[in-house]
Deep mutational scan, measured.
Amino acid sequence: NQASVVANQLIPISTHLTLVMMRSEVVTPVGIPAEDIPRLVSMQVNRAVPLGTTLMPDMVKGYA
């Protein structure tokens, strides 16, 4: 099972991601792979992401 990136807190819209905001967890459905966490740092979310939500490629500007 592959770990995905999950929000560690509420991430407001247009926030630049930091390591503190993300954790890796095995979830269904599978989202952005956990090994991409370093790549996600300083990218922006294009919507509010609630605590515990799996980050999907379409939620992060410039990821997909």
Score class of each variant (00 low, 15 high):
8 N>M: 06
43 M>L: 11
10 L>V: 11
14 S>P: 00
4 S>N: 01
39 R>K: 15
17 L>V: 01
30 V>R: 05
1 N>L: 13
8 N>T: 11
62 G>M: 08
35 E>N: 11
37 I>G: 03
13 I>W: 09
53 T>N: 10
61 K>F: 13
56 M>F: 10
16 H>K: 13
55 L>N: 01
26 V>C: 10
47 R>N: 08
14 S>Y: 14
30 V>Q: 15
20 V>Y: 13
49 V>Q: 02
38 P>W: 10
45 V>Q: 01
20 V>I: 12
36 D>M: 11
44 Q>L: 07
19 L>D: 06
55 L>D: 02
22 M>F: 05
56 M>S: 06
40 L>P: 00
34 A>I: 06
7 A>P: 02
50 P>G: 13
48 A>M: 15
29 P>I: 07
5 V>F: 03
37 I>T: 08
40 L>Q: 00
36 D>I: 07
13 I>Y: 14
27 V>F: 03
11 I>T: 00
49 V>K: 02
28 T>H: 11
50 P>Q: 10
21 M>T: 03
8 N>W: 04
50 P>M: 07
59 M>V: 08
20 V>W: 12
28 T>Y: 10
6 V>R: 03
9 Q>W: 08
47 R>C: 09
43 M>H: 07
28 T>R: 04
3 A>L: 11
25 E>N: 08
21 M>W: 00
37 I>A: 07
57 P>I: 05
48 A>Q: 13
45 V>L: 09
9 Q>V: 11
13 I>M: 11
7 A>H: 02
26 V>H: 12
52 G>S: 07
48 A>I: 14
3 A>R: 06
29 P>T: 05
51 L>F: 12
42 S>C: 14
62 G>K: 06
20 V>T: 13
18 T>D: 08
8 N>G: 06
40 L>G: 00
58 D>P: 06
49 V>T: 04
49 V>S: 02
45 V>G: 03
32 I>W: 01
15 T>G: 06
62 G>R: 06
28 T>V: 10
21 M>D: 04
34 A>C: 08
51 L>T: 13
37 I>L: 14
41 V>G: 02
55 L>M: 12
37 I>P: 02
30 V>Y: 11
28 T>C: 09
11 I>P: 00
44 Q>T: 15
41 V>H: 02
25 E>P: 00
47 R>A: 09
9 Q>A: 11
54 T>N: 02
44 Q>H: 12
28 T>L: 08
46 N>I: 15
57 P>L: 04
7 A>G: 02
6 V>L: 07
25 E>G: 12
36 D>Q: 14
20 V>F: 15
19 L>W: 13
41 V>Q: 06
19 L>C: 13
19 L>K: 10
3 A>S: 12
34 A>Q: 07
60 V>H: 01
37 I>N: 00
17 L>R: 00
35 E>Y: 10
55 L>A: 02
42 S>Q: 10
8 N>S: 15
62 G>F: 07
53 T>K: 08
13 I>R: 12
59 M>Q: 04
16 H>A: 15
51 L>N: 13
52 G>R: 04
28 T>M: 09
9 Q>L: 13
61 K>T: 15
19 L>Y: 14
30 V>G: 08
51 L>R: 11
13 I>H: 14
37 I>W: 03
51 L>Q: 14
61 K>Q: 15
19 L>T: 10
48 A>K: 13
58 D>W: 10
30 V>H: 12
63 Y>T: 03
32 I>E: 01
60 V>W: 01
5 V>G: 03
26 V>A: 09
60 V>K: 02
12 P>C: 05
22 M>H: 02
7 A>I: 04
42 S>P: 00
33 P>G: 05
43 M>T: 04
58 D>C: 15
54 T>L: 04
32 I>T: 01
21 M>P: 03
15 T>F: 07
57 P>H: 08
16 H>N: 10
6 V>P: 01
57 P>S: 08
2 Q>G: 15
41 V>E: 05
30 V>P: 12
35 E>K: 07
35 E>G: 07
13 I>F: 11
15 T>Q: 08
49 V>H: 03
27 V>Q: 05
41 V>F: 04
14 S>A: 14
13 I>N: 12
25 E>F: 06
54 T>P: 08
24 S>C: 08
33 P>E: 05
63 Y>E: 04
60 V>Q: 00
51 L>D: 12
61 K>H: 15
41 V>K: 04
34 A>T: 10
10 L>Y: 13
46 N>G: 06
46 N>W: 06
41 V>P: 01
22 M>Y: 00
29 P>L: 05
54 T>A: 06
10 L>D: 14
28 T>Q: 11
6 V>E: 01
10 L>P: 10
56 M>C: 14
8 N>A: 14
26 V>G: 05
29 P>D: 09
19 L>N: 08
13 I>E: 15
7 A>R: 02
40 L>D: 00
51 L>C: 10
63 Y>D: 03
1 N>M: 15
52 G>Q: 02
2 Q>A: 14
10 L>W: 10
8 N>E: 07
30 V>D: 12
63 Y>S: 03
27 V>L: 04
19 L>M: 14
22 M>Q: 00
12 P>H: 09
1 N>C: 07
49 V>W: 04
53 T>P: 02
48 A>P: 10
53 T>W: 11
14 S>M: 14
13 I>T: 12
34 A>L: 03
8 N>K: 09
2 Q>S: 13
59 M>D: 13
46 N>L: 14
54 T>S: 04
30 V>S: 13
60 V>P: 00
23 R>G: 07
2 Q>V: 10
